[in-house]
Simulated scan of single mutants.
Amino acid sequence: MTFLFRDAEGPALCPQGSVVCIGAFDGLHLGHRALIDRAVARARALGVAAVAVGFEPLPRELFARGVKPPRLMLVADKIAGLRGLGVDGIGLLRFNARLAALDAAEFVRRTLLARLAAREVWVGPGFRFGHARGGDLALLQALGAQAGFSAHAIAPVALDGERISSTRIRAALTAGDFSAVARLLGRPYAIGGRVVRGRQLGRTLGYPTANLRFAGKTPALRGIYATRVHGVAAAPWPSVSSFGTRPTVDGIEPLLEAHLFDFDGDLYGRRIEVEFVAHLRDEEKFPDLAALTAQMQRDDAQARAILLQHEPQRVFA
């Protein structure tokens, strides 16, 4: 069973040693997977635990002023994805003012050594860590030489001559290029979660929806989409989804609302994944519910036509 920890310091978790990989892991794209695969392979070769260490919230969210930067995935999906890649331990360290003030040497001593007994540490290209991002790979290697572990960076993972990154994926999502996103992730882009009750306005308009909250985070996309819902039947279910704040009804919190075509069933509490296939239009405010309903009918027809032309794919590789 994979163990999960949140604190940078505390009791030893890997008394026999570990191989650690460190990153934000937002999206778990092909670059992240290459890093994790390397750490897992080295851990198996050494007979020790493979541990992925990240941060929650993401550092850029803590330091942001105003609206938080967009993120690709929520914590539950990240944990599930990391488990699926074979790690033995997952550290989602609470990134707060105290951890941000910890210098690089103290982070190595308290987390990599005292908690994880690291034998090897693997990082991605351009890795920085510690207070004010003062540490880099060279410092990590120097500290490791003193403490008895080695540090390494994997080579950049590129696609079409450009390094794969979460920033690149966010840009592709904004542009509605889901084909490019799938190539960068190694799987279609999807958002998962448990279905929650909404205001049930869609049901009164003839378009009941399965609703997912984005846990107070800023999503990397917004608008109306042709989608497929995984987790309700043996095959992905065709749907049309709205992701935004619902300006026509004065919504505030970002909400993902998926209308499953010709579906009759209760999904409350069910965990589903909504796979994004194509962008239909931006979110907009309509003068009244009649105008909104008319547009929803057009969205429905357009999404059905698009989905007929796209073969379903597996969400998780």
Score class of each variant (00 low, 15 high):
residue 206 G to K: 12
residue 205 L to A: 15
residue 219 P to N: 03
residue 180 A to S: 15
residue 206 G to R: 10
residue 175 A to S: 15
residue 248 T to Y: 05
residue 168 R to S: 06
residue 187 R to S: 02
residue 222 R to M: 12
residue 181 V to Q: 06
residue 206 G to M: 11
residue 209 T to F: 08
residue 221 L to T: 02
residue 233 A to Q: 03
residue 246 R to K: 13
residue 247 P to G: 04
residue 186 G to A: 07
residue 190 A to V: 09
residue 200 Q to H: 15
residue 217 K to N: 12
residue 204 T to R: 15
residue 191 I to P: 13
residue 220 A to E: 00
residue 230 H to E: 03
residue 243 F to N: 00
residue 196 V to D: 09
residue 251 G to A: 03
residue 168 R to D: 03
residue 238 P to R: 02
residue 246 R to E: 07
residue 250 D to Y: 12
residue 241 S to I: 03
residue 189 Y to H: 14
residue 238 P to G: 01
residue 219 P to M: 06
residue 237 W to A: 00
residue 185 L to Y: 06
residue 244 G to Q: 04
residue 224 I to E: 03
residue 235 A to H: 10
residue 214 F to K: 05
residue 181 V to L: 07
residue 174 T to M: 10
residue 185 L to S: 05
residue 224 I to A: 08
residue 223 G to C: 06
residue 219 P to Y: 07
residue 249 V to A: 11
residue 197 R to M: 10
residue 226 A to K: 02
residue 194 R to W: 09
residue 224 I to M: 13
residue 234 A to R: 12
residue 172 A to W: 15
residue 186 G to Y: 01
residue 184 L to D: 12
residue 183 R to E: 15
residue 229 V to Q: 00
residue 204 T to K: 13
residue 226 A to E: 00
residue 207 Y to T: 08
residue 242 S to E: 10
residue 197 R to N: 13
residue 200 Q to D: 12
residue 239 S to A: 15
residue 190 A to N: 07
residue 170 R to A: 04
residue 203 R to I: 14
residue 218 T to D: 10
residue 235 A to D: 07
residue 228 R to F: 01
residue 192 G to T: 02
residue 213 R to I: 09
residue 209 T to I: 06
residue 238 P to C: 02
residue 175 A to H: 11
residue 205 L to S: 14
residue 222 R to H: 13
residue 173 L to F: 12
residue 228 R to L: 03
residue 232 V to G: 01
residue 189 Y to K: 10
residue 200 Q to P: 10
residue 217 K to R: 11
residue 215 A to D: 15
residue 184 L to T: 00
residue 236 P to M: 03
residue 231 G to A: 05
residue 178 F to Y: 15
residue 198 G to H: 08
residue 180 A to G: 09
residue 226 A to H: 02
residue 221 L to S: 04
residue 235 A to R: 12
residue 243 F to R: 02
residue 188 P to A: 07
residue 251 G to Y: 01
residue 243 F to V: 00
residue 232 V to N: 04
residue 246 R to Y: 01
residue 204 T to I: 07
residue 220 A to S: 06
residue 202 G to K: 08
residue 191 I to M: 14
residue 202 G to N: 09
residue 251 G to S: 05
residue 222 R to C: 15
residue 227 T to I: 05
residue 206 G to Y: 09
residue 213 R to W: 11
residue 189 Y to G: 08
residue 229 V to R: 01
residue 220 A to T: 01
residue 167 T to C: 09
residue 218 T to Y: 06
residue 221 L to Q: 05
residue 212 L to P: 07
residue 234 A to S: 14
residue 198 G to V: 07
residue 204 T to Q: 13
residue 183 R to G: 08
residue 242 S to N: 15
residue 228 R to Q: 00
residue 192 G to Y: 01
residue 180 A to H: 08
residue 214 F to W: 14
residue 169 I to N: 02
residue 211 N to C: 13
residue 239 S to L: 01
residue 246 R to W: 01
residue 215 A to R: 09
residue 204 T to L: 13
residue 251 G to I: 04
residue 247 P to M: 05
residue 202 G to C: 10
